[in-house]
Design a protein around this nucleic acid. Structure first.
Lengths: 340, 340
DNA sequence: CCTTGCCATGGCAACGTTTTCATCCTAGCG
DNA sequence: CGCTAGGATGAAAACGTTGCCATGGCAAGG
């Protein structure tokens, strides 16, 4: 009969016995929580290395009042452009802070987000960064207790909480404004969900700027609700083949931008494109491109600041921070070799 | 004086009191570990929902023998092309299995990998997926105890363990072979680290195939050790501007492929390109492209299979699995509109 | 020399859960 | 009607850690 041979990890007791001291002393050495004679401490440290001992985070976080030195991050979906960047930046920030970052994915489902928040709380994370999903129709989000939460990149509905996000309204407004000034009157809008947060701000900005200039947004040039790049490609291809094609296409996410560029390449169109997110393959664009540059280092430092403050002191009123964005202009590299 | 008002999460005792039963009974209802009268169980469940109670994973995993229903994933770096895909697939697999996935990043540093393995173990994950970093000069990896580990995508050095990776040697060999058959005699090789696992296999394949055909790899056409896209761009641009430019460029990672394509676009070169990873913006390539398609769903299902087997039964000898890859051929979309 | 006080250390309870063991009750059978 | 078997439930120990309290020793001050 084959037993499970996974050797049990050593406990603080094993260390204590090996070092010839009490468990309390080992704990004191490991946490530096009280003075221990240097020779004793050295003996303990030797035992620790010899046994390859690590304190059990589970047992440790059982005690009330102890920080687990762990942060959680819940991302909405891996398709998001900022996914890698956000994890990279937060991981670095956590490391600097001496904490470990645990990541999980909500898949844009509120039920899953709720479950994972509880799951992370039950692991006693000190705090959580959450890219909120939509769908909290019951206002349950406001009743969540447990670890403090800082919402990131998207403004959650139905709850007053700490939020850090970019000023996507302004970002989109500036892009549309600029295109208008350049003379574009037929701009297409390709978006994802426009009734939930970041999409709704972008869509509102697009409408507002066009209206302010007296233009009436042409419904034939608006196509929203895209979840994947493929449908965006079809939508834009259709527009480009129509009687009155757009002279510019504005899109909201990097994922959709790829879909749009695909359509532009397929149709061999020569128009302007713009996006309120960056993509790393932007330089391959066959057409001139304007991108909104969002500094995720800034986002993360703000989020970390808010979370640590909240962990220290839960009483303060919640804050919402709208961070400024930059812009990048790219002309197609191959344009000189294209027939003019 | 502002106190920390973070309300303590309810315990199983609170539920027991509210439901008018003992803690044991609550535990039994929650785990289904023993029969409980249906009416009593119902009362407990009501109390659980009313208090929004969740079992503390920390306290739970303290008991020996209990599964935490948690898996860990340690990724080497977020710049890796497969990063998002791997997390997405593993997250789905974990969810199907009823487990939660916790992700952390080793940043390609062995010290950090070691630390995180212990950290995850101390959180009592049932098992770990690890994309191994290099640098374990002391052979410490083989002495790691704690949760069972399945290494993913890269073959760790100095340890016999469960590994699942793609057959990158064969993938590269096939690509080079095909280019040779097409008549290419001056192929450039742009790679990252070639003395550690997946890079070493790819580099070996490139050399082997060229040698088998009697060709001598031109050192001027080999440039390795690239960590970012920028240096690859410079290297390829240099080659393209030289007296004897390559007629094809083979590269190893998606990150470097972008750098290569940038050089090709900048120089307006008309050559072949190939890569042993996929990128989602491949269709924007200005030149014909051959990509190796790696099915990460397959990778993950194999890894999960190995890990669950290992969790059930630690005694079995370790396995190494080399998974087959596919290939994708892309012709540039705009080629018809380019001057021929 | 005796007392006071501090410093180093050990003992022990508690954290929230699961599980074994014991207890009680009921129903079924002789 | 009495006894037993079994099902439902409660009490308590244990998991690994930390912090409070107690203890003992030693130095300094009276």
């Amino acid at each position: 009969m084959s037993r499970n041979l996974q050797p049990k990890p050593p406990t603080i007791k094993d260390v204590a016995v090996l070092a010839g001291v009490s468990m309390s002393t080992v704990s004191r050495v490991l946490n530096g929580s009280a003075a221990v004679q240097s020779e004793t401490a050295e003996r303990v440290r030797r035992a620790v290395t010899q046994l390859d001992f690590v304190l059990s985070a589970s047992a440790r976080s059982l005690r009330p009042g102890v920080r687990s030195m762990t942060w959680g991050l819940l991302v909405d979906a891996v398709e998001s452009h900022y996914f890698s960047t956000l994890i990279a930046e937060l991981d670095r920030a956590a490391q600097d802070h001496g904490s470990t970052l645990l990541v999980s994915v909500t898949q844009k489902e509120w039920a899953r987000e709720k479950h994972l928040i509880k799951e992370m709380s039950s692991r006693r994370v000190d705090g959580l960064f959450v890219v909120p999903a939509n769908g909290d129709v019951l206002g349950e989000r406001s009743r969540l207790s447990g670890a403090p939460i800082v919402y990131v990149d998207r403004i959650p509905s139905g709850v007053v909480a700490d939020v850090v996000t970019f000023d996507y309204y302004k970002a989109m407004a500036e892009i549309v404004e600029e295109l208008w000034v350049q003379g574009h009157r037929r701009m297409a809008f390709i978006g994802g969900e426009v009734d939930t947060d970041p999409g709704s701000r972008r869509y509102a900005a697009w409408n507002d700027v066009l209206r302010r200039h007296g233009g009436t947004p042409d419904p034939d040039l608006v196509s929203v609700g895209h979840l994947v790049a493929g449908t965006a490609t079809e939508a834009v291809a259709g527009m480009l083949r129509s009687d009155r094609p757009p002279t510019a296409v504005v899109t909201t996410t990097g994922l959709l931008l790829l879909g749009v560029l695909r359509a532009i390449a397929l149709e061999g169109a020569d128009i302007e494109a713009a996006c309120t997110e960056e993509i790393d393959s932007a330089f391959l664009s066959p057409v001139p491109l304007t991108l909104v540059a969002a500094d995720f280092t800034l986002l993360v430092s703000n989020a970390v600041e808010l979370l640590t403050a909240r962990i220290e002191n839960a009483g303060e009123p919640p804050t919402t921070r709208l961070l400024p964005t930059g812009r990048v202009r790219l002309d197609p590299l191959r344009s000189s070799t294209l027939p003019s």
